[in-house]
């Protein structure tokens, strides 16, 4: 299997989608907290100056302003790095967005290890875990450009608060143009029977590489993308657990409370089978390239292969 990078950076795709929608959807307003350039929304600011506001380095206020806008019928997209978008503003999002159930969008860029040389202070290992624990909040992580575009109509029409975890650079292409996005439903990437690899974000590509390696060893591995961590597709995940009887979760963040926990909870509730978790094993990040950190933290295809074999062994 050959892997190719998507042609456009995700932040460029994001700005394009925002701009296209804003032409016909008066509700759309964009908020930044001094990361307009990093998040790729400069063109929106240029083209829609009356609907784009840079609040400065004041993320808490950005969320509150977004909530006020949303209460008046606007659809605000509040952008910043995931670390600031979630843990720094957790109470603001909890009370002003989720408790109020207002339709605002919090978009966090540079998830998990993707913060690379910004290092441990900027790495949100726990954002999925804490956002998933928040009532009313939906959590979505697009895996590539095709899926992001396919999900856009849902993103702008979803009635409650939504957190989007966005890798801002070029993603590995996973889905082809015929891909159909089903809100709240997992997406099958590759069929298989012996073990299922549940993956999100940048880890989908690693899971696919792992599935290829497993095939060479005579193991049939399915790859299933869990793009929406909440509402969680318990039915879809349980069906795959039943079919394969063993699972590995692959996520770019802590295994405490994120995708791994969600799948393990689903297994415990529906069909107890072995679940091995690949991700950040309860530690902070550090500066480094993505590939270096993935290797150091045992988050590569090789690690997934080992975990898959261990999970299959536990079936016996």
């Amino acid at each position: 299997m050959t892997f190719v990078k998507d042609q456009n950076e995700m932040r460029k795709v994001y700005c394009t989608l925002l701009s296209e929608s804003a032409k016909t959807d008066d509700r759309i307003v964009v908020l930044e907290a001094d990361l307009m350039a990093s998040n790729g929304t400069k063109d929106f600011f240029k083209n829609f100056p009356e609907r784009a506001y840079n609040v400065g380095i004041a993320e808490a206020n950005m969320i509150g302003v977004a909530a006020g806008l949303a209460s008046c019928g606007k659809l605000p997209f509040a952008n910043t790095f995931t670390a600031f978008a979630t843990r720094r503003c957790y109470d603001q999002i909890t009370i002003s967005a989720a408790y109020t159930n207002l339709p605002l969008r919090v978009v966090g860029t540079d998830p998990g290890l993707a913060a690379e040389v910004n290092g441990g202070t900027h790495m949100s290992m726990e954002d999925v875990s804490i956002m998933r624990a928040m009532p009313n909040m939906a959590v979505f992580e697009p895996v590539d450009e095709t899926q992001f575009r396919a999900a856009w109509d849902w993103i702008v029409s979803y009635e409650g608060p939504l957190y989007i975890r966005l890798f801002r650079k070029n993603t590995t292409k996973i889905f082809d143009e015929g891909y159909t996005f089903e809100p709240g439903k997992v997406s099958l990437v590759k069929d298989g029977a012996d073990v299922v690899l549940f993956a999100s974000g940048i880890m989908v590509a690693e899971a696919l590489k792992a599935a290829e390696a497993l095939e060479a060893d005579g193991i049939s591995a399915a790859v299933v993308n869990v793009h929406t961590l909440k509402p969680f597709d318990s039915e879809g995940v349980a069906a795959w657990l039943k079919k394969c009887g063993a699972a590995v979760t692959c996520e770019n963040g802590t295994v405490l409370g994120g995708l791994g926990s969600a799948v393990a909870e689903c297994a415990a509730d529906n069909c107890p089978v072995p679940v091995k978790k690949i991700g950040v094993q309860d530690h902070f990040g550090e500066v480094g390239t993505l590939s270096y950190l993935q290797e150091k933290y045992h988050m590569t295809a090789k690690d997934i292969v080992e975990a898959a074999k261990a999970a299959i062994d536990m079936k016996k």
Binding site: Y53, G64, S96
Partner: peptide, 18 residues
Amino acid sequence: SLAQGFSAAVGMALAGKV
């Protein structure tokens, strides 16, 4: 949770301007 309402009021005023 104090101060959050004040930010929201600012957002409402901004929406009025927009």
